[in-house]
Structures are given as structure tokens and as C-alpha cells.
Amino acid sequence: MEQIENVLPAAVTAPLLEQLSGWLDAGVAAVPRIGIALLVLLMTALVAYGFRALVRRIGSRAKLRRNLIDVLQLLSGTTIWLAGILIALTVVFPTITPGRALTTLGLGSVAIGFAFKDTFENFLAGILILLREPFQIGDHVECDGAEGKVEAITIRDTHIRQTDGQLVVVPNAQLFHNAVTVRTDKAFRRTEIIVGVAYGEDVDAARDVIAKAVRAVDMVRDDVRDIQVFAKSFGASSIDFEVAWWTGSEPVDIRASRDKVVAAIKRALDDEGIEIPFPYRTLTVNGPLPVRAVPDAAE
């Protein structure tokens, strides 16, 4: 103190020393409150841990998805920690009431919300998706150009594995705001092809042959719904039939069943002598064409 007084005038050192003394006294007086606040934070950690374990146990018994259990644990743990921190602040700083703390927290949340708008949007969308469960892990979905099997649903994004093996990470807000096609929502799905027969063939006979051939395919689930064969249109060189049947909803089921159906229809039409025509082109010449003999090269 004497060294400080020798360097600085008393008019400067006196208020400074008084201020430092006041801070020291306040710090010593706050030690018990700080200890109580640390005890409150320790109890908060124990309560949060216990509550998270309880949520996991209840969710496992209720057979909830793991991602949904993680969300519930996160929300419950965050709520408990916020309450514990508010209590600790009011213990250390008695002038801070819970109302003032909540007001300050609310203003700070608004500022943070504007700064991280997209992040919070994806977070909330992820929670709603996990709660509503419009699709599950393993479903084949399509949304805004992204199509494939759902591998993971996190708080921020959803991982979709495309049929070519590539992984697409889609923000949850995109899945929440846009239409999502869940192709494997049911065990079976309808698919169709177009089959053409020549104009000279009997339409009813061709329809019966096609229907019989499709029913004989093992991947066609006519026990779910019967197949449908309709004469659809007059094509350029054929009568076109629309053939629809039900099979498994996985993309590989669609491709495999279509392969077998096409082969079966082709084989059945060939066996019955029903022509599957090639495209025909008819050329019409308005005037006579001159014919000129071409001499043989050997001559």
C-alpha cells in the first residue's frame, strides 16, 4: 500500500483502495452463497441425470424410437438445467429475481434466434418429425429430388441413402415444409407397364392372354388386389394395353417384378401367335416415280 501511495497521489489511491476493499468484502461475503450455488448445480446435475435415465427407461418400455427418446432426454435435461441455473443465479446474486432472469434470458433468446434461425428451424422440425413419425428408419422416401432409404433421423437432419449408394443429408426443415412421398408406407405397391399388340389381333383374346400371363408370375400379389388389363389407346402401330399389378413396395421388388412380368407377357403372346408389332412407317408418293434400269457391274 505504501508503494502505491508513493507512486500515485492520495487523491487517486484512496478511492481505488476503497473500491478494492469493497470488492474483497463482497467476495468474502459471497463465499457461502457461491458454495450454496455450487451445491444447487451439483443437485441439478444429479436430478438431470436421474430424469434422463427415467425417460430412457420409460421410452424403452413404451418401445419408442431411440431418436425420439434422445430428443425427450435432451428436452427434459435442458429444462432441468435452466431451472437449476436460474436458482443458482438468484442465490449468488440476491438482487436478481427469477422474473428478471427470465426476462434477460428471453431477450437473449430472441437475439440468438435471429442469429441461428435456420439451425433452430431444423431443430424444431426434427422434433416434430420424430414426434409425428410420418416415416421411419428403413422407409424408402422421396422429397424434393432426394430419394432413397432413411438411415438416420437426427435433431438437425435426416440421412437418406440413394439406390446408387450415395448418401444425401437432408435438413429437417426441407422434409417438414415439402411434400414427402413414403413409398414403403405399405407392404405392397402398384406398378404398371404398357403392352402393344398389332391392329390385326383380337383385342379380347390378347387381353385374356396378358392377364393370364401376369397372374402366373410369383411376384405378382393378386391376393392383395387383382391385376388390371385395360385397352388404353390407339398407338402408332399397335393397340396399347395398360397392365397394372401389385407387388412389394421396395424399389428392388418393383424392378424385379417388372422384369418377370415383361418376360412372361412376351412368352405368352409368342406362344399364342399374337404379334407384338414394330413401329410401322407408311410412305405415300403423290406422283409416279421414274424407273431406270441399272446396268450390271459384271457386264
Rank of each mutant, 00 (worst) to 15 (best):
V182W: 02
I155R: 03
A187F: 06
A187S: 12
G145L: 03
Q162A: 14
G196N: 05
R183W: 11
F176S: 04
R189Q: 09
Q136A: 11
L175A: 02
E147Q: 06
K186Y: 00
F188D: 09
T158A: 03
I155C: 07
H140R: 08
T154C: 07
I160K: 04
Q162C: 09
E147K: 10
R189C: 03
E147V: 01
N172Q: 04
D144V: 11
E147F: 02
E147G: 01
C143A: 15
F135W: 00
I160R: 04
Q162R: 15
V168P: 02
I160F: 07
Q174N: 12
V169P: 00
E142I: 06
H140A: 03
I160G: 01
D185G: 10
L175G: 01
R132P: 08
G138I: 07
R161V: 13
T191I: 14
I153V: 15
I137R: 12
K186H: 10
G138Q: 05
D157Q: 07
E133N: 05
K149W: 11
R156L: 15
T184D: 08
R132V: 15
H177E: 15
D144N: 15
A173D: 11
A152L: 09
T158P: 03
V170Q: 06
D139G: 04
I194C: 06
L131T: 11
P171Y: 05
Q166N: 14
L175S: 00
R156N: 12
V197L: 01
V170P: 03
Q136E: 15
E142A: 13
V150E: 05
G145I: 03
E133A: 10
L167A: 12
F135N: 03
H177G: 04
L167P: 03
R132E: 14
K149Q: 10
I153A: 09
E142G: 06
A173C: 08
D164V: 00
N178P: 09
R189W: 05
T191E: 09
D185I: 09
R189M: 13
A173I: 12
E192T: 13
I153M: 11
G148D: 02
R132K: 12
L167Y: 05
E147L: 00
Q162G: 10
E151A: 09
G196Q: 05
A179F: 08
N178H: 11
V169H: 02
Q162V: 05
R161A: 13
D157I: 00
Q166P: 00
G145M: 06
C143E: 07
V170K: 06
L175H: 00
A173H: 15
T163C: 03
E151F: 00
I193Y: 07
V168H: 08
T191G: 02
D139F: 01
D157K: 08
G165H: 04
N172S: 01
T181Y: 06
C143P: 09
N172L: 04
T181D: 10
E192M: 12
I194H: 08
L131H: 10
F188K: 11
V141N: 08
G196Y: 02
V180D: 00
L167N: 10
P134R: 10
H159Q: 13
G138Y: 11
V141D: 06
D144I: 06
F135Q: 00
I193K: 04
L167V: 12
D185F: 09
V168N: 10
K186I: 07
